[in-house]
Structures are given as C-alpha cells and as structure tokens.
Design a protein around this nucleic acid. Structure first.
Length: 348
RNA sequence: GCCCCGGUAGUGUAGUGGCCUAUCAUGGAGCCCUGUCGAGGCUCCGACGUGGAUUCAAAUUCCGCCCGGGGCGCCA
C-alpha cells in the first residue's frame, strides 16, 4: 500500500475500455485502445515474457559465437516470389518491404561472417486472415557457415529453444502457468520425426495426406506427439523437394534429391521455425530458381556472391510471435504484438 | 481470396415483425451502508453499424456497403 498519493492527471470518463472492469472486452476493442489495454497486468505480462524470450535468444546466440547484424528492410527482390511482397515507391523506383532476411544473411556467409543472427521485422502481404498470421512480424534469423548437415543447424536451434524455455521457467514460470497451466520447459534433445514418419503417424490416426501437411494435419500431429510422448516441441525433417520448390535456396540431399534437408519446428501443432541447409553451388541454385519460376536476373546481387567462394551453410527463421503465442497458449497471435498489423488493421 | 457466423448503452450481452420510449451485467454520476482491501443497497445516465427495400408496423425480414469473429488455403 502506498503511504501517500498525488493526483497528477484526471482521466476522462467514461473509459473507452475498462481496465479493472469485471467484463472482458473483445480483442478488437482492446487493440483499438491498446494504451489502456496494456495497463492490465496480465496483458503486460505477455510482453515481459516476450522480452525475456528475446533477451535469452540474444544471450544464447552471442555465447554461441553468432554476431548480431541488421540487413535492409527496403529491398528490390523478395526471397519467395512477388505475391507476398508489399510494394512501395522508392524515389520513383519500385521497391518492396523485405519478407525475410534470407538473401542478405546468406550474402554475409560469403563475407566471412561465419555465424550471424538478426532479430527484425518481416513483412508479408499474404492474404492470410487467421489467428496465427500478421502482416508484420518479428523474425529471428540465424545463418551459419560450414554447417555439414541440417543436423548441425537443428542442434543450434534445439539448444537455443531449450535454453530460452528453461530460463523463462526459472524467471517467470509461475506467471506463465497462470496463463498456460500446461507450460513446461523441454529437457533438451527435441524429438525429430521425418516427414514420411509424420505421414505414417497421421495415417494411423485416420488422416491420409496427399501433399504437404495442411493445417488440420499439423494440429493432429501435435496431438499425437503430445499423447504418445507428452512432448510439445518437435522437428519435422526431410521434407520432399517437390514440396519446397518455391524455396529455391533449399539444398537437396546429395544422394537423394527427392528430399531436402529442410525441417520445420512445431510447437503443439503450430509451425514456429523453418530452416535447413542452403544450396551454395551457383549452377544448382540457378537451376532451382528457374524451377521455382523465378528470373535469376532479378537476383543479381544475391547470385554474384555465390561465384567467389561461398561456404556450405544453413540456418533457420523463427517467428518470435508464434513462439510467444504457443508458450502462453494465446488464442490470437495479435495478443503478443503491441500494435499488430494485419490485413485490416493499420492503426493504432 | 473462399466458406460460415455476427454487428444493440463506454464495455460485454438479452431481445426473430407490433408486448421495446429495448434485458441483464459492467462502467460513470450521486446518495446510503460499512474497519477495509475488484464489499453491499438504492437512484439516475447511457445503445439498436450504414444506405435502400418490404410492411399499417422492423432491433427483429430482404439486398448492397462497411466493420468484426471463426475456419480454410498459405506460411513465421
């Protein structure tokens, strides 16, 4: 209890949003009045958790010899074709908002930055109107040279996630469990299942897959793993190359080009990371770009770097909001963004 | 972008053609009560997204638009 208090400012009434009301407000109403919404302790806690996640991720990566970098967010070409790019007028020239740091962090691999990471916004003009998509999200990108296999990349990610969650549990475990009673930090050595195994597990549950994992399949797989192993976080590895054609920079398995070394990390059926070994051989990269229907000419700056000594390398991209959403079991990803941007929301 | 659902006081809701000058809760204003800490009682305040249409009569039916919710495709 305060010994004394002084009124510095009187609030106008009525409030656009109750801060201590017994009635909950809709998320939309709350976001429209976010400055008041954030005064609620349980809402503020979400951002304290987010802060710890970012702090621990940085600490882990710095300790593991990764250097933090910043790459441009105004770019001339995207990593995955044009459909998800926001366009803008750059001094009279067409330009885009970066949908990922992919091309630049790979470029750095040819520059002697053997291990880099970046935590920065990524922009997607996807018409994805769901509780797990936003148009501007925070991407944690990691890239490392001289990785020999996807395993090397997964090991870094595995250790990072486990350290983040263990630290979170130690610092804020009780508060987190008030929001998500089932929160539990994994022991380490996260489970890896191949895409083919996932397909079998799903078939066993009566869900037969035609092509890639769809949303329902991902959720069911999350439930299966939870029931069978009581685990929340796992890798899905060895994606078929035909499912990753758009990801032209993915390296395929040398003795089995039907497969990529690409992996996803899923958290209770929600994809939070995607990564793998990158194709570092110029000729093959060009070929894969053409297969993806892209014009190599538009990627000159990127392709050039592969012609003067590019080490084999790999990395991953992690969606910070997706991770926080799953840690706290938030029903909507917008809950863990201060001022979210989506198809319909541009302010506040 | 596609499918389904919805838009009623500051906030969350009830209300499917006349009984609605619209319910309840929360909130605000005020009075009362009370050794308290999101206590209780009473009074008051405050709303039918928007534009058309049907009808003697529309919050309630129909159409357009805007906005929101859920799901899907796709992905971080």
């Amino acid at each position: 209890m305060p010994a004394e208090y002084e009124i510095l400012n009187l609030a106008k009434t009525p409030l656009p949003l109750g801060v201590v009301d017994k009635v909950d407000a809709d998320l939309d109403t709350r976001l429209n009045n976010r400055f008041l919404d954030l005064r609620k302790e349980e809402i503020f806690t979400i951002f304290r958790v987010r802060n710890v996640v970012l702090r621990k991720a940085r600490a882990f990566l710095q300790d593991a010899g990764f250097e933090e970098v910043n790459t441009p967010k105004i770019v001339a070409a995207g990593a995955e074709g044009g459909s998800t790019l926001f366009t803008l007028d750059y001094f009279g020239k067409p330009a885009y908002l970066a949908q990922s740091s992919q091309l630049y962090k790979q470029t750095l691999m040819a520059s002697g930055f053997d291990r880099v990471f970046e935590i920065a916004p990524a922009f997607r003009a996807e018409e994805s109107d769901t509780v797990r998509h936003i148009a501007e999200f925070t991407s944690l990108d990691v890239e490392m040279s001289f990785a020999n296999s996807s395993e090397d990349v997964m090991n870094v990610l595995d250790a990072m996630i486990c350290q983040i969650l263990a630290s979170l549990d130690a610092e804020m475990g009780d508060e987190i469990r008030e929001m998500n009673p089932d929160f539990k930090a994994p022991e380490g050595n996260l489970r890896k299942i191949t895409f083919a195994e996932a397909k079998e597990m799903l078939a066993g549950a009566g869900k037969n897959l035609e092509g890639d994992l769809d949303t329902e399949a991902e959720k069911v797989l999350g439930q299966i793993i939870k029931e069978k192993f009581d685990e929340d976080i796992y890798f899905i590895t060895d994606f078929p190359s035909e499912l990753k054609l758009g990801t032209f920079y993915a390296r395929r398995v040398d003795d089995n080009p039907e497969l990529t070394g690409y992996f996803d990390m899923d958290y209770r059926g929600q994809e939070i990371v995607s990564g793998g070994m990158r194709e570092h051989r110029y000729d093959i990269l060009i070929k894969q770009m053409e297969e993806a229907g892209l014009d190599p000419g538009a990627f000159d700056f990127y392709l050039k770097t592969f012609q003067y000594g590019m080490p084999p390398h790999g990395g991953f991209g992690l969606g910070i909001e997706r991770l926080v959403q799953m840690i706290l079991n938030l029903s909507n990803i917008r809950e863990c963004v201060l001022f979210p941007r989506d198809m319909h929301r541009l302010e506040p």
